[in-house]
Design a binder for these strands. Structure first.
Length: 219
DNA sequence: CACCAGGCAAGTA
DNA sequence: TACTTGCATGGT
C-alpha cells in the first residue's frame, strides 16, 4: 500500500467497513434521472415513496411523464417534498431532452460528457450535483459527484480545506483516482454511508469512525 | 418539540 | 461577490 494515494486508501477503508453499496442497480436510466431530481435535499426514503407512486401511474418513461398533467405529477411526488418545485424541475428536464436530444434520454447519456453536462446545467432546477449524479448513475460517465457529505467528511479529516468549492473538490478526486466510473459510483455511496453513520453534523462518532486518523496517512 | 435529509434558484446589500 | 430565504414531506 506504499504507493497508494490517501484518497484510494480512504476508499479501501470505507469499502472494508461498509461493504459494497451498489447504488441504483437494475433501475432504468430514466428512473435514475428522475430520482436524482427528487432526492434534492431530501431523504431517500421519501423519494422511494414518490418513485413508487410514479410506477403505479406508469409515468416512469419520457413519453408518459411528458404528458402527465403538472398538478397530478406534483401530487404523485408529494412525499419527496418541494413537490410543486420538483414537478416543474422534472418538466424542465424533459423539455431540454426534447429540444436537444429529440426526446431521447439515451442520446443525452451517450453524448460527450462536457456537452451533456452543459445541457443538464442549463435546466432550471438541475445544479452540479444533480447533473453529475445523472451522468454517473444513469449514464456511467466517469464524473465524481460531490455533496455536502463529501465536503463534511473530507474537510473534517483534513483532506480538503474547509472553504473548498464543488469544482475544486471534484477536480481533486479526478486528479488522484483512477478514471473509473464504477469506482466513482461506489465511492460516492460509501461517503454517504460514513457520513450518516459516523460523521453527522451534530453528533459525530469520531472514535468509532473507520476513517479515524486517516489524515496522518501515509505517516 | 427541534432538527435534518443524496440542492437549487432568486432575492438582497 | 457573499449571504439569506423559499421550497415541504417525513423520520428521529
Amino acid at each position: 500500500m506504499a504507493n497508494t494515494d490517501a484518497f484510494t486508501y480512504v476508499y479501501e477503508l470505507l469499502l472494508d467497513h461498509f461493504g459494497y453499496q451498489g447504488w441504483w442497480p437494475g433501475e432504468t436510466p430514466f428512473e435514475i434521472a428522475v430520482g436524482a431530481v427528487l432526492t434534492q435535499n431530501t431523504n431517500w426514503q421519501n423519494v422511494a415513496k414518490a418513485i413508487d407512486n410514479l410506477k403505479v401511474m406508469n409515468w416512469l418513461s419520457y413519453e408518459a411523464l411528458a404528458v402527465a398533467p403538472m398538478e397530478e405529477l406534483a401530487e404523485a411526488i408529494r412525499p419527496s417534498g418541494y413537490y410543486n418545485l420538483k414537478a416543474r424541475r422534472l418538466k424542465n428536464l424533459l423539455a431540454m431532452i426534447s429540444r436537444e436530444y429529440d426526446g431521447e434520454l439515451s442520446f443525452l447519456l451517450s453524448d460527450k460528457t462536457e456537452s451533456a453536462r452543459h445541457n443538464l446545467l442549463s435546466v432550471k432546477g438541475v445544479g452540479p450535483e444533480t447533473a453529475d449524479a445523472i451522468l454517473l448513475y444513469a449514464g456511467n460517465h466517469p464524473v465524481f459527484v460531490i455533496d455536502t457529505y463529501t465536503h463534511r467528511v473530507f474537510s473534517r479529516h483534513g483532506l480538503f480545506p474547509e472553504e473548498s468549492d464543488y469544482h475544486e473538490m471534484q477536480q481533486e478526486f479526478i486528479d488522484r483516482l483512477p478514471n473509473d466510473h464504477q469506482l466513482f459510483n461506489e465511492y460516492h455511496a460509501l461517503i454517504v454511508m460514513v457520513s450518516k453513520e459516523y460523521c453527522k453534523k451534530k453528533n459525530p462518532l469520531c472514535e468509532a469512525c473507520p476513517l479515524k486518523g486517516v489524515n496522518n496517512y501515509p505517516a
